[in-house]
Nucleic acid binder design. Structure first.
Length: 408
DNA sequence: TGCTTGGATAGATAGTGGTT
DNA sequence: AACCACTATCTATCCAAGCA
């Protein structure tokens, strides 16, 4: 262990750990001025959301204690397996919020100097998270609990106060980089929507019903030659059901299933209103439940990528949704879909639009990759810094270099 | 004895899909 | 159109042990 570091327990670093009251609360989102008790969901790793709370009244308000205050850490003692032990640093006072009995707050020690930001990072570190989640009891797979004594006796390598501050500010830099990247991605996504809208939907192109571009493909899996059963989900398009579910959910006999080939589109008529429609890109072929509609495009009239961009635009999604609402079961038949019209300029223009949109999309996916890298690197950094394997300081060129990368 | 605390569990709600 | 299967999330609520 590094010079000046001591091994200790979480309990030594704080005066006490207190939990709030057991209440029922009132449904409905409280305003910032209402007295309210936090929901357990207000705390996730590193993030505090005071909006996640319920209004309280009368007798409950009188019993209420434990107000989140600046400099404290709030910890989840009873939660789902993923979130049990989750904690966050409180950076301002919340005078009209109270803790429920399922959350703890740390009361800082009056004499000992401890940087609570550092402690919060420690509690959120991969190591501490792992320890806490393995200490959690509870046989049900939906709710786990941590006891007070287990948290208080959790071992922690304690650096000197100054080092605590350095570690905290270093990791804060990293968090900033992550936040900035997230914000940038959000902005780029907004821009992408705007671009789609302006290049396709509001560009004044002549519109044509999509039925003039699409033709249904109803090839059946006659001799059961294809075994790859696929589903179309609203968030990831084509997926293998076994990745989504434990078991394969298809029927025994798949000879009546519909065959879909690469580049073709498919949707489930009763799920399309929530966005379950996609183009098959990742596999050569696959089979789908007979209820699906499979279609292909006439690529002499429309560029497939252009069509896909249009299909993913908020305007097209809305129109599909509207067309579903007319029917009793909220389904969209192939005929219904064909009745929607698409702005369709000449092929050259379609290609130009597609080029621009693909470029913008690639930029977003690159930023997402970067973000993912940042998160992985932050995990590693936490591990190394909080255990004292690396020291933060001017003396450490490697750490300094990484810090610079994190900022830019 | 009555209140607090830790822990287990049921159930509401929402969502993903499917078959017949 | 009716119905089924399964997962995930969240939290109300109950119960027993601990404590003053």
């Amino acid at each position: 262990m590094n010079k000046g570091w001591k091994s200790g327990r979480v309990g030594e670093l704080i005066a006490s750990l207190e939990s709030g009251i057991s209440v029922n609360g009132v449904d409905g989102t409280p305003s910032n001025d209402d007295y309210a008790v936090l929901k357990v969901s207000a705390v996730t790793y590193g993030k505090f959301n005071p909006q996640a709370s319920k209004k309280i009244t009368g007798s409950e308000l009188q019993r209420a204690k434990c107000i989140p205050k600046k400099g404290q850490i709030i910890i989840s003692r009873s939660n789902t397996p993923e979130l049990v032990g989750a904690s966050c640093y409180i950076s301002e006072d919340y005078p009209n919020r109270f803790l429920p009995d399922k959350l703890w707050q740390t009361i800082p020690h009056p004499e000992k100097k401890v940087e609570h930001k550092w402690l919060a990072y420690f509690l959120a570190s991969p190591w501490a998270r792992f320890r806490l989640s393995s200490l959690a009891t509870g046989t049900s797979n939906s709710m786990k609990n941590i006891t007070k004594s287990e948290l208080l006796t959790l071992p922690v390598p304690i650096p000197p106060f100054l080092e605590q501050k350095r570690i905290a500010s270093f990791l804060e830099c990293w968090d900033n980089a992550i936040e900035k990247t997230e914000a940038l991605i959000a902005a780029k996504e907004k821009q992408f929507e705007w671009l789609t809208s302006n290049l396709i939907n509001r560009a004044g192109h002549k519109r044509k019903p999509t039925s003039s571009l699409m033709s249904e493909v109803s090839k059946r899996n006659k001799n059961s030659g294809i075994e790859r059963v696929l589903s179309v989900t609203n968030h990831s398009g084509f997926v293998l059901p076994e990745e989504q579910f434990e078991r394969r959910v298809a029927s025994e006999n798949v000879s009546n299933y519909k065959v879909v080939g690469k580049g073709q589109y498919a949707y489930n008529p009763s799920r399309i209103n929530v966005g379950s429609i996609a183009r098959l890109d990742n596999w050569e072929n696959g089979i789908l439940s007979p209820m699906y509609v499979v279609f292909k495009l006439d690529t002499t009239k429309v560029c497939s990528d252009y069509f896909l961009h249009w299909l993913n635009s908020s305007e097209a999604r809305q129109r599909i949704k509207n067309s579903a609402q007319g029917s009793v079961r909220e389904t969209v038949s192939f005929k219904d879909l064909g009745a929607i019209d698409i702005p369709l300029p000449a092929m050259e223009i379609q290609k130009g639009v597609t080029y621009k949109l693909n470029l913008a999309q690639r930029e977003i996916s690159l930023l997402n990759k970067t973000l993912k890298q940042y998160r992985i690197q932050k995990r590693g950094l936490m591990q190394n810094l909080l255990t004292g394997e690396w020291q933060v300081g001017n003396s450490h060129p490697e750490a300094e270099e990484i810090r610079k990368e994190g900022i830019t």
